[in-house]
Design a protein around this nucleic acid. Structure first.
Lengths: 345, 345
DNA sequence: AAAATAAAGGCAATCGGTTGCGTAAAATAT
DNA sequence: ATATTTTACGCAACCGATTGCCTTTATTTT
């Protein structure tokens, strides 16, 4: 009994058992109308009795289309991303699809390789959020050429026409800045992310326009361009800002990590939050509610974005939407006001 | 040009182009020794020229084995889990495997359904961490019967023999408790998770034995059994503990969420941390470094556990390890001391 | 130079469903 | 009672790569 691998039951086994042809079995199992009611019932019962499990590989091969949705993101272990994945997974599974994940670690080459791998495994659609390094989205064309839907989420390319599920980053940046203005802040700094990623560019644009709309002239010294928006970068920038002779009275950070580091750095330097420095972040990560004072932030409907992405893919398969059409879904964000920016009560 | 789906290149196309048989193409592409050097080179070049991409579905069907590793966990968007997944994904991809994820939302029925789905998609191995509700692991037997390796991680079943990648929960609980004792605490409370999950049971046992070893008699009133160890449960329990006539001077929580809520609740009630209440958590989630005072915790090598899980699966495929053999990998944990438990300096 | 061995490829079955087309029997229409 | 339609099911090709076995040609052995 070295190999007690139980024999796997196939439709051929059912066919033999009942003296029907495999095609009848196949059809009966999918409730095809051309098979008699009684026959269908009998076949389905026998299938269950024998412990039949469909081999989806075979079906996928024949249909040239798997039931797998691919996810291509930068890093799994980030609150926003893991919630996004969670949303994709839930809705995909509910529809009978599996989810393949791949992470690029914010590396362009990895992203290209992962796109290849997902393509080769014949995913029926892909949900993608670009790496920090990605400036060219040609590696997604292979999917479009085969009419495999690509849904870009959050970090989307500017040069490729495809589905998008995004938030209105401009408006979010505008709202965040306006909130600070309404709290009485006038010298508002901004932590901006890499500008080739439009999410960061748009947030910055919203910031600038909000300032202007309220009669504040943007000060270049208060606009900090960052690389990865890490905790360290945030600390350093905050320290620099606070040591200016005319320091800012608020910071709008494009992510929560840097915003939290700003809070911690400010406290370390004895700067009171929000009285002397109001802070608002972006994403509404769990740490936002934990840091003290609690960090105001822009909430990002991550889970929902995942669900909508799945929906786009499934719709594409159903409707046979024409190629080249790009349907863009823009979701609302919300300003979550917490203590870190609440000057007026 | 309604459908400009470019024709996909197969080995047959290459065969026609070069007047070789498909079998020769197949072998040449895998550098089979029975194909001549020159021929192999020519075929590989032509394959590249034509843009050939292997159809892994076909290969998987033929080999009755996909290159997909399945992950079955409770919730993706938890720091520990997303890091675990990250570890699995990285190492799997490096070895040319894809990763399928599924989450049960801590629901037993979902877990069973997901196990089925992963089985049906012919994963070549599975990494699983049980849901809170799971008390029976029979739904994993289908894999073992087909000699598909199952690696249980973290939340492992007690009644099924398979690979395991775990930490020494008993020792971690012991160390955490001992650390509090060394800091001068004597009335140490414990937030224990659902006891049918051995991780929580073992942590609790470590806690109790550490107390005894140091001459402290465990007090039942200080041992709080929780359900999900949520923020709310932690708050409530903390409030109850602090209102006792003889309140604890320390809390060892089986997770960080509840530990953080304990800190916040204690602060709200004016209890000083760590002077009046020392706190240590478990997992070393990101929030542990953010909360104030920073939370001491037990670090859990999540990423590494993921990598080792992948390794087990790949080894299984290579070595054709006998069935029924369970190889258990136990990893070390580390006590991360931060301000929340640092009474002696 | 004859025999044995090695090298290089081809044939055809196989993995397990799926599906267009065809057909026999039953039901309905005329 | 005959013609027509419907119902119920089978045949066989197909999806694309893999592989055991066989054949042919080249190389080595004796």
């Amino acid at each position: 009994m070295s190999k007690k691998k139980n024999k796997v039951v196939t439709i051929y086994d059912i066919a033999n058992e009942l003296n029907y042809s495999p095609s009848t079995i196949s059809r009966a199992l999918k409730n095809h109308k051309s098979i008699g009611k009684d026959t269908t019932k009998q076949i389905q019962e026998t299938a269950k009795k024998l412990g039949y499990r469909p081999n989806s590989l075979a079906a996928s091969l024949r249909n040239n289309r798997s039931n797998n949705i691919g996810i291509l993101i930068a890093r799994i272990n980030r609150p926003f991303i893991s919630s996004l994945i969670s949303g994709v997974e839930n809705s995909a599974r509910a529809a009978g699809y599996n989810v393949l994940i791949s992470q690029s670690d914010d590396n362009y080459k990895n992203e290209v390789a992962n796109a290849k791998a997902l393509y080769d495994s014949r995913v029926c659609g892909i949900v993608a959020s670009l790496s920090m390094e990605t400036k060219n989205a040609d590696h997604f064309k292979q999917f479009l050429e085969q009419d495999i839907p690509v849904v870009f989420v959050d970090r989307v390319p500017s040069d490729l026409n495809s589905y998008r599920v995004i938030i209105d980053n401009y408006s979010a940046g505008y709202k965040a800045t306006e909130h600070l203005i309404q709290q009485g802040c006038t010298r508002i700094a901004h932590f901006a992310g890499a500008q080739h990623l439009n999410i960061y560019k748009l947030r910055k644009n919203g910031y600038i326009d909000a300032l202007k709309a309220h009669g504040i002239t943007p000060d270049k010294e208060l606009l900090i361009y960052m690389n990865t928006m890490s905790f360290e970068e945030g600390q350093e920038a905050t320290s620099k800002l606070l040591n200016m002779k005319n320091p800012p009275d608020a910071i709008f950070s494009s992510n929560d990590t840097a915003a939290v580091s700003a809070i911690m750095q400010a406290k370390k330097q004895g700067v009171k939050i929000p009285e002397e420095l109001a802070v608002i972040g972006f994403n509404d990560d769990p740490i936002a509610s934990i840091v003290e004072p609690a960090l105001s932030s822009i909430s990002h409907p991550a889970m929902k974005m995942g669900e909508l992405s799945t929906k786009r893919i499934l719709e594409h398969a159903d409707k046979k939407i024409e190629q080249g059409v790009s349907e863009i879904t823009v979701l609302d964000t919300e300003v979550i006001v917490r203590a870190s920016s609440l000057r007026k009560k």
